[in-house]
């Protein structure tokens, strides 16, 4: 799980206390809404560090991957091996950022802040496969349907319904967290970065959206990908495979690294970091309660389909 990405620290212990309090409230809220005071059937135990762990993102990613692999194996059997040869070699968990940790809001150590600045390393992308062959188009549709059928009845409905549920949550989660923060924080952050030797070129804009990009410091870039501007020739009857994109590191400028350290210190000094975590757990709790009916209905179906997916493709 993504919660293993960070190491124990003062902020972790502080966060654990916040999480424990919020989880107690969550359990109480869910219990109160269930008939007769019993916990709602099917929802299962709540992760004390992250209420949205009830969202089965790994299972959803596994189902997605299994359908893709089964489809691509079918395509290969029909004489079109391109997709199977270029697809990712493991599932991609869905909505993995629901697992909120201190790292969700930025680097948590000065060492990490220096290394990554305000950027992110880019992950590898598989090749796009583009057909100009109507026979292939018919085969991919047919194989896609067969892949869903092998996973069980009404699988597609549950799959898309669960993505809808995830998107309802992800569409509001971070904006709601931001709305809950103390309204004096932008001014506090500005005062803090000024004390560290920085200033906003547009104070009004910074107080509205206090982003480090407004502090007049040049930012770095991700290393460019080796292939550029690929576009299929679209010759009728052909299937074209675009170049895969390798993983590439983000390289901050020296000034950005320095600012990232100051920014981290200011996030801690102004209590922004603490407030973000507190709000995150609180908002997650509310969202789980708001969508409880969907979780109770869909989680058992997703678990069942994921089990079938594991049996079919051998991925656990």
């Amino acid at each position: 799980m993504a919660s293993e990405r960070w190491s124990p620290s003062t902020s972790e212990r502080r966060w654990a206390r916040l999480a424990a309090a919020a989880t107690a409230a969550l359990v109480a809220a869910l219990t109160a809404t269930a008939c007769g005071g019993d916990p709602p059937a099917g929802l299962g135990a709540v992760d004390e560090r992250n209420p949205l762990a009830v969202f089965l993102g790994e299972s959803l990613g596994l189902i997605d991957y299994a359908q893709l692999k089964l489809r691509n194996e079918c395509l290969a059997g029909a004489g079109y091996p391109q997709n199977l040869e270029t697809m990712m070699d493991q599932p991609v968990p869905a909505f993995s950022m629901f697992v909120i940790t201190p790292r969700t809001f930025g680097p948590t150590t000065e060492q990490e802040a220096r290394r990554i600045g305000f950027g992110r390393d880019e992950q590898a992308e598989p090749s796009p496969v583009v057909s100009s062959d109507p026979n292939y188009d018919r085969a991919i549709d047919s194989c896609g349907g067969k892949a869903w059928d092998r996973l069980g009845d009404d699988v597609q409905d549950a799959y898309y319904a669960y993505f809808d549920l995830g998107n309802k949550i992800s569409g509001t989660l971070m904006t709601t967290i931001s709305e809950r923060l103390d309204k004096s924080l932008p001014a506090k952050m500005l005062a803090c970065v000024r004390a560290a030797g920085y200033d906003a070129d547009d104070e009004r804009q910074f107080l509205k959206t206090p982003r480090p990009a407004l502090l007049g410091v040049p930012f770095g870039t991700v290393d460019p990908a080796p292939d550029t501007g690929w576009r299929p020739a679209r010759k009728p009857g052909t299937i074209e495979v675009g170049p895969a994109i390798p993983a590439r590191p983000y390289r901050p400028t020296a000034q950005e690294s320095e600012l990232a350290v100051a920014w981290l210190r200011c996030r801690e000094q102004t209590t922004l970091a603490d407030q973000q975590l507190t709000a995150a757990i609180s908002v997650q709790k509310e969202l789980v309660a708001k969508h409880e009916t969907s979780f109770v209905e869909l989680n058992p179906r997703i678990r069942r389909i994921a089990k079938q997916a594991t049996e079919l493709i051998g991925t656990s």
Partner: peptide, 18 residues
């Protein structure tokens, strides 16, 4: 997109054929 404090966040995860 970016959150209020400028850190990248995802707002949707669109499945294939969505």
């Amino acid at each position: 997109d970016y959150d209020t404090y400028g850190y990248e966040w995802f707002y949707a995860d669109l499945p294939r054929d969505y």
